[in-house]
Write a protein that binds this DNA or RNA. Structure first.
Lengths: 247, 247
DNA sequence: CGTGAGGTTGACTTCGGTCAACGTTTGTGG
DNA sequence: CCACAAACGTTGACCGAAGTCAACCTCACG
């Protein structure tokens, strides 16, 4: 490995993690930048897995396009969905702890990612003592997100949960400089329901209502937001609340 | 600070964290040991706070007796309870991230704690590179616990949640070598309800039913477990499942 | 004692789950 | 490119778990 290359990766990674730690995730422009630097994998087809639970931890990944879902099965065999990841999200942190991934990471749509290999990351953590602290910061953010999700499950009714979910997705596009009033979102209602602790029927009914009220429509994988203010209000976002997601 | 003292603290802490990271938390005997080493605070009266959200992070604490609840308020002013802590639990990790506590930690009963001051911990993390990794491990455990709690909220009905809660408490006593078939538990039903996403009435009705079925009784702050097997089964514990809690 | 916080119980309501029928979309193989 | 099947989505009728509201009880504590 050339020093040059290593330096490049170091700055890229440290920059990436800074961005991860603090407000907005990776910007569209950052991703373009990453394109020039890190390894690129060939796109993953819908249904395929980026990694499986138990596999050796090799990399973290920056999502360039598509959608991923992170999931596992409970003791009783039910699917537990831990989150959905969009372009700009950085995933794979679930492998950090014991050097193997804890969850399954599946593409729900044709998805491409950048590859940030662990061995380089590992070298870096020798060279950069603050890296551990950055990891701690990432995990703290993740904890904070989990708490918000628990709050959602405990305190909010079905309408609020669905509104929250959609706005959360849109907000991530917004914060990263993508067009967010209309976007493709290839996630099954069934998966949304599992994630929110509801049934597909309930999700469907609520989407019908949101559509009838001209707040948002989600048809054929295409989301359109007609009334951002009302959506945010329903979702219970208290004005510009940052709600970052990691894996 | 004498080298002697420092060494003592180092071994104590590292041992404490090891225990925290791996299965069982602090054993009764460990606590007796800690008594001889670390600073002891005078007991906290019921209703008083060990620390408040926003206060400067000064210490982590090992609970010696009593109960603590960790809570905050949502944007909409609702109380969110993040957990309850019993003798043997180690609390205060919520202050690690940005050197100030994120939550309120209130005694629900007369409570005494050992004090593990942060400056010593901080010195240690210079001396012991693995300390950061141990912190990462603690946070991973916390994440894991959060996920179990989410699963509880999404997939389990009110009866299962209450049974889970009681068994979770009992199990912690059990794993630390205390008598667990009968113990004092000075937590308001209201607080249990908030924690589990239920109402006090529902909790009360379920406790009546559990009592009528001779599974467990919880009256006047005293819990008695009559039928451990049935309780665990209701709670959905898949045999000897470890369900550690941290703060 | 009396007071007030907390716990219990019952009647009623409601939200969301369940079941079932029917549409619609997607993807595959001729 | 079409035909078909299977997966997914929608809608309605019905049901049940848990929430709400209200009355009453119990206990701890001054």
């Amino acid at each position: 490995m050339t020093t040059h290359k290593s330096t490049f990766n170091a700055s890229c990674l440290s920059c990436g993690l800074q961005k991860v730690c603090f407000p907005t995730g990776l910007m569209k422009t950052d991703i373009d930048l990453l394109d020039n630097i890190v390894e690129r994998k060939s796109p993953i087809k819908k249904g395929q897995h980026l990694y499986h639970a138990g596999e050796k931890f090799t990399s973290i990944f920056a999502v360039r396009s598509g959608v991923l879902k992170m999931y596992a099965y409970s003791d009783s065999g039910e699917e537990i969905i831990h989150g959905f990841y969009l372009p700009g999200d950085v995933v794979g942190f679930d492998g950090l702890l014991d050097e193997s991934y804890q969850f399954n990471m599946q593409a729900l749509d044709s998805t491409s990612v950048c590859n940030l290999p662990y061995d380089k990351l590992s070298d870096l953590s020798q060279q950069i003592p603050s890296l551990n602290q950055q990891i701690i910061a990432v995990m703290s953010k993740k904890l904070q997100f989990n708490r918000l999700h628990s709050e959602l499950l405990i305190k909010r009714n079905a309408d609020q949960r669905v509104a929250h979910f959609i706005w959360h997705m849109a907000d991530r596009f917004k914060q990263r400089g993508y067009f967010y009033e209309e976007f493709r979102l290839n996630i099954l209602h069934r998966d949304v329901a599992v994630y929110l602790g509801l049934t597909p029927e309930t999700v469907s009914r609520i989407l019908s209502k949101l559509n009838a009220d001209n707040i948002v429509s989600w048809k054929k994988k295409q989301v359109m937001i007609f009334d951002e203010a009302k959506l945010k209000q329903l979702a219970g976002f208290s004005e510009a609340e940052v709600c970052q997601e990691f894996a």
